[in-house]
Design a protein around this nucleic acid. Structure first.
Lengths: 212, 212, 212, 212
DNA sequence: TAATAACCGAGACGGTACGTCTCGTCTTAGG
DNA sequence: CCTAAGACGAGACGTACCGTCTCGGTTATTA
């Protein structure tokens, strides 16, 4: 019967997966080297050793190509567990500092932010990609902090996450201020103090079920 | 002899000041409508009812034009003085929320950030323009808070400013989260608590070294 | 077991002879419809219901394909024998008129001429194909005319053939003038008169200037 | 009132006539070097020292460009007057032989003929251009021949012109036969004999003065 | 008052990158 | 091994925009 099983027969020569990898790899390299606006499709083609049609067969437009390339940057982010909420946050924020001071992010982010405003797909890819990974890790650490009683049980997680991430982005994209461990520590300290468990110590009723 | 009268005599027909206004106005409109990257000089010329040469006579390049247009957006920002540091901060942050939720900023900022990365002049204009105005006002309020004893005397002003501004930018440019009074209040509250004067000197010596 | 049966074993699936016919047929159709330069191999494949590789397996290049298609157009041309040289020529020229006013030649010839200039093989195919057939027939008639005494014994056959064929081609390809029996008769008459046997002391043997 | 006088005001920078000449010159050169099909617009642009847009502003498509370039080839053709119809024809045919054996015609004509079949404009340009010039000159000579009594008064001029021109084109485009003075003389002689004045038979007083 | 010089709108200029199309080849699944 | 379908590397096409230059004409200052 062959119903509802696969997307038809797929006649003809299948697309070469290596071409796709080569295209995205070349795109990332050139994005980092020259920025998104200065990225030329012909250069992507020639660096990838690929015809332009092979690119356009996969990605309808330059924006699509950039979106796809950025989506490849996602990496797993481990949730640290040092026993100290402050230390866990510092570990994660240290990693963020490393990323933002690395070779890729400073060149990519400004253009990426601009493209995100024009392309919903790219915005979704970025938010669901490397952004979500980091935020998930931070959220887990914060939650453990609440459970431990280090942080207030009414903690506004989204606010805390944006306070952790915002200043780094702000300096990277706007003020040009230094992005270093000092900044990371300062933000973490602020979170720890500002969202600290209040005196009356109703110990972490924010927990889901492991309260007992 | 032409002596002793004035510097830069300026022969010939003087530049028409209305042209300059029309150019910058059209530029701002089109920046908001289409974004900076999609902004076409030809379109600016035609909307301003001006020849392209008239634009390039004033602004050497597209970046210069954008920089000049953005510089027009600067507004005086009054330093509030309610008597309460928290309230003063909330006033300023409320204004910032208004700007970021207005018609211009959300469309302009993403591209602006991208262009700033490519143009030192634009970056300087933005930082020295409406950014500096707001930061100066916030800094004044913070300083008063320190003087009043509401805030810690070792306050890292740059950190505080970036924590105040960063989350708003972060949501505007990256996460797409809500930018509202709740966010503003949350950040202000965090600053007030996290950077509070430590009368009883509780041990949190996470500060760099000058804590003692 | 299929052993020991014939010479030239021909392993695998044999070529489908129908494919070749379909390819050449589609090629001729499309050549007539769009011209040789606008002929697309993909279109030939799709009209013939054939894969592109099936075409290229048989014909190494587009020129080869066109050459083969054109070669199919050759037809036997009977040498007429009415007893009159003039009538024989008129019969052949009438056939030529029919060909040049038919559906194929007017659409094919212009491009064919162009392709012949770039492809020696095609030129040879055309000259050795339907062109040679007609010229051979005409030559035979002319020869009989000489033998009969209707035409001069020093007849320059090549010149005569080109005078017979040239004007038709000229009108088809260049001037756009009418190609009809009137033209054919006029050319034949010219040949008959101009190359007539000069019984009484033929002094002007076509020399250039020593006529006096 | 300014009615019906000129095509409006002509605002803006006028087109540079030198660019037009450079474009057409480069086009002719490259057409001769590589043929029309292999002619690349980028090469025309770079050889003419011109941007591609400058070409496309004037010529909507490659065919238009070729048409315009070919139209430039027209040259004045003087009507010879040696006193002898035969000699006059030989002069003109000799010039035709020179053209067809020159550097341009053999490379251009095949493609030109093909393009003419697809472009009415080009066909009109060719026929009304250098073709008409030569035919007009030949026609004038033939007419004088009739007036002198060298040629039959019922002469079919179009037929005569096509017999004069056809064989040369035929050899150039189709048979590849030699195009030389021998061919020209043969054709002229054929015309002189085949279209000679018949009845009164003043045999070839077409000679200049050595008749007596 | 007449020249002069810089301005004005309009639009052509030489370039550069785009996204589309076709070529002739190659790669799959199936007969 | 052949077939149909269709992806492949290469490269020309015609479009769009950049920043500059050129035109005829306008507006102030200087002579």
């Amino acid at each position: 019967m062959r119903a509802t099983q696969g997307p038809a027969r797929r006649l003809g020569r299948p697309r070469d997966a290596r071409a796709e990898q080569a295209i995205l790899g070349a795109t990332l390299e050139l994005m980092a080297e020259r920025g998104i606006a200065r990225l030329r499709i012909d250069d992507v083609a020639s660096r990838a050793g690929v015809g332009k049609a092979t690119i356009y067969r996969r990605f309808a437009t330059k924006d699509d190509l950039v979106t796809a390339a950025v989506s490849r940057l996602v990496r797993e982010i481990a949730v640290p567990d040092t026993g100290s909420t402050r230390d866990d946050l510092q570990v994660l924020m240290g990693e963020a500092v490393d990323v933002y001071t690395g070779p890729l992010a400073p060149r990519l982010m400004p253009d990426l932010v601009s493209e995100m405003a024009h392309s919903t797909e790219l915005a979704a890819a970025v938010r669901g990609g490397f952004l979500a990974a980091r935020r998930d890790a931070l959220r887990a650490v914060l939650r453990r902090g609440v459970e431990r009683g280090d942080l207030h049980s009414d903690l506004d997680y989204e606010l805390a996450l944006d306070v952790l991430g915002g200043p780094l982005f702000y300096r990277l994209l706007v003020t040009g201020g230094p992005i270093d461990q000092h900044l990371a520590d300062g933000v973490v300290e602020l979170i720890m103090r500002g969202f600290a468990q209040t005196k009356t110590s109703h110990p972490s009723n924010a927990n889901r079920k492991d309260d007992a």
